[in-house]
């Protein structure tokens, strides 16, 4: 299972990087969200996949999985949700103001 996850993470990283390197702003934003997904999966895998019951006292199991990475991922998801939505709004505003979503044209000059 870990091997499969490693491949999934690698592919997500690859697609994310590819999208971030493209010129359209929308693709870049999608790329960043894929990248954060990959990182969250990485965090999940790194703490070992299923080693026991869900970390709830009601389960009354002998072994539980480590709840810490799940808490970390939740925090990270919340943060990336906020940042991505902010990024979206900003990109939309920038598109309205500047009339383009092409990063090449958003380069800007040095002397202004």
């Amino acid at each position: 299972m870990e091997i499969l996850m490693a491949f999934a993470i690698g592919i997500l990283f690859m697609v994310g990087t590819y999208l971030i390197l493209s010129r359209s702003l929308l693709r870049i934003i999608l790329g960043t969200s894929l990248l954060t997904h990959a990182v969250h999966l990485l965090l999940l895998t790194m703490s070992r996949l299923k080693t026991g019951a869900a970390p709830l006292l009601g389960e009354k199991a002998g072994t539980y999985v480590d709840p810490l990475p799940q808490a970390l991922i939740l925090t990270s998801i919340v943060i990336s949700f906020g940042v991505t939505s902010f990024f979206f709004v900003l990109a939309y505003r920038a598109y309205q103001e500047l009339g383009t979503d092409d990063m090449e044209q958003l380069r800007g000059r040095d002397d202004e």
């Binding site: 960043t32 990248l35 990959a38 990182v39 991505t84 990024f87 920038a94 500047l98 958003l106």
Partner: peptide, 22 residues
């Protein structure tokens, strides 16, 4: 224009931060 780049670079570095923590 500039804040788009600023946010993008920081999102990427934050993703790397979480990966290093992992």
């Amino acid at each position: 224009r500039e804040s788009l780049k600023y946010i993008l670079i920081n999102i990427i570095s934050s993703a790397l931060f979480v990966a290093s923590v992992a």
